[in-house]
Amino acid sequence: MSECRYTRARRVDEAVAALAEAKGDAHVIAGGIALGILMNEKLVSPTWLVDISRIEALKGIVRGPDGTLRIGALTTHREVEESPAVAAAQPMLPEMAAEIACGRIKNRGTFGGNLSLADPQGDPPVAVIALRATMRAAGPLGVRDIPATEFFRDLYTTALREGELLQEVLFPPLAPGAGTAYGKFAARRAMDYTSTVAVGVRAVVEPATGCIKDIGLGLGGVGPIPVWARATEAALRGMRPEPAVIDRACDVLVDEIEPLADHLYSADFKRHVATVILRRTLARACARAARGVEARR
């Protein structure tokens, strides 16, 4: 077994300095779940671990005076699920977090670790895309912001540069008339993590006309990266969510995604499931928008 170094960072700059010194040879660990699995599977034998799990500055949930919600990278899925501040500002997030695996994973897995891992099956990526969040990264040159829609670049690859940390995620306040919903297809949530399909919808509906003024659509499990469904959004924007419009949006979606077949389902089956989940989730988001549920919070 090769020697492994260990750095327990207490501050962001300590972690950034260690990563700079390691020149790409270090693994950041937050919840440590993904790395634990890779080591057990003998896919990784790390030479330097930079443990960020005790950096206080990466913890916490804050709602700013302008309504922006900030979630620190180390926030666990369980905290996202249970936080009243999150539920009040972005009700899609607790709905999303409830769908993740099981209690054990939610206790330990972090929001930032999940997003940085960029697993195409991940749930948080779907939500940050639909909600148009901003990813704030800290690196040797300071802090920079990356739109969620540009964050996921390739299989398990994000826009974070070598030596950068994801520090926090910022969610702009929902517009008046917005409704959000999260839907997921999973035979057994806790175990079939490789074969799920998820859809996050943020719809802003104009009360007078019933038209979708603005929409955000994220999908998971339908390709090598979490998907920003731009073309499907365009097919719905400005339209009333009537059956013909939704049918057309589903046709667009089927062409926009490239699901991979796996040991349970074919690519075509996942395409179909994605349209079913889109229909249901869109209907829930629009119904919530109509009731003004989100706006009143």
Binding site: I29, G32, I33, L35, G36, I37, N40, E41, L49, R78, A101, C102, G103, R104, I105, N107, R108, A190, M191, Y193
Partner: peptide
């Protein structure tokens, strides 16, 4: 891999998979 649950222990009263926890 954190899937089966047999290695579950409590860390500060909360469940964790001890096989993937350093």
């Amino acid at each position: 891999m954190g899937i089966c649950g047999v290695c579950t222990v409590l860390v500060n009263g909360r469940t964790a998979s001890s096989c993937i926890l350093l």
